[in-house]
Amino acid sequence: MDMAEQPRIKLPGQARKGEIIEIKTLVSHAMENGLRRDQNGVTIPRKIINRFVCEFNGQLVFSCDLDTAVAANPYLQFFAKVEEDGTFRFSWTDDDGSTLTAEEKIIVTA
């Protein structure tokens, strides 16, 4: 069976002010690299997630461009320093222009 469409996010629900937290993301995507052929020898068109962006309260935290060598179901793990309560917003942009998004809130204690 194939996977669900909902991205997976893992980050702590709360952190201390100034703490560096770890964020893990996993999204379901075939990452078809455009180099494969089907059984009739016809090239399967490229369809990958080409960009990932993470923002916190509207400020860019982390972004990257993904290319054809990235395996199916891209998993990204990175760190962020949090100074205030807020919302992380994640987006994955597909070659077809569509975007998957997800949000996670965090509470910051003194």
């Binding site: 069976m1 996977m3 669900a4 179901n73």
Partner: peptide
């Protein structure tokens, strides 16, 4: 761990 094993998505489905 759903971040390790995409098969865990079956549970949610």
């Amino acid at each position: 761990d759903p971040l390790v094993n995409p098969g865990m998505w079956a549970v949610e489905k």
